[in-house]
């Protein structure tokens, strides 16, 4: 598909490509400089809820990548056809379709995982990251770039969740992906990490780390 686009693009193709040269910047934005969890602090409800085990958060991350890419693609494809009055409800319909697709897939092929994630897969419909990317990005940008943006934000979410879950599962249960790394004789699992406070604490550290490495935001520098 990328090749096709370059052909039709003609002279500008060599430098621009399907993403108009913004692909890398978009990818970096979603994953790092404006990571939905650790910088924008969006969609933290699910990030707190499913990060008690690494496996759960990886599946949840995959779900968000799938939904973001799919919904961004279709919102972008339909962006010139969509009447403004029903814009948001249309986006929700598309998002909900992808979420339910993923949910049905889990229910059919990964029943145990579906049970563990409980309502949180379905709740991706109301996740502000997905809706936010559709509104803020896909409505203004071409399909391929929108898909990159969806992927980047989904990946940013997945990475942030994986970091949180890594520490919560390791310190809270002494295991990773179900494998015992810290045997019980040598390490006493800290229940706090599995419970809600552990999620808040770890998220706080992740936010602090991302902000520390990214440095202060430009608009904050200009403030007196």
């Amino acid at each position: 598909m990328a090749d096709n686009q370059q052909m039709t693009c003609g002279p500008c193709a060599a430098s621009a490509g399907p993403c108009d040269g913004k692909g890398k910047a978009t990818l970096k934005d979603g994953v790092w400089t404006s990571n939905p969890i650790s910088i924008q602090v969006l969609g933290v409800c699910s990030a707190l809820a499913v990060t008690n085990r690494l496996e759960n958060s990886l599946v949840m991350g995959a779900a968000l990548i799938f939904v973001c890419v799919g919904s961004n693609l279709f919102v972008s494809l339909l962006r010139d056809l969509t009447p403004r009055r029903v814009r948001m409800i249309g986006e929700v319909a598309i998002i909900a379709t992808f979420v339910i697709l993923f949910d049905q897939f889990l229910k059919a092929y990964y029943w145990d995982m579906s049970k563990q994630l409980g309502p949180y897969v379905g709740l991706i419909i109301t996740n502000c990251i997905v809706m936010g990317r559709a509104e803020a990005f896909a409505l203004q940008n071409p399909p391929v770039l929108s898909m990159v943006d969806g992927f980047a934000n989904g990946l940013g979410y997945a990475i942030a969740l994986a970091i949180i879950a890594f520490f919560r599962e390791l310190l809270g249960a002494g295991t990773l992906l179900g494998w015992t790394l810290l045997p019980s004789g040598f390490y006493t699992p800290n229940q706090l990490m599995i419970l809600a406070p552990g999620a808040f604490l770890t998220l706080g550290f992740v936010i602090a780390f991302f902000n520390f490495v990214n440095g202060p935001k430009p608009e904050e520098e200009s403030k007196p």
Binding site: P83, R84, V86, A93, I100
Partner: peptide
């Protein structure tokens, strides 16, 4: 694009396609 009839048509088509897809899956 902002006429009532168009909005209705758009909603109907998007809604039906989504519903059809989910029914099949």
């Amino acid at each position: 694009k902002d006429s009532g009839l168009y909005t209705l048509k758009y909603s109907f088509i998007v809604g039906s396609v989504c519903a059809l897809l989910l029914t099949v899956v």
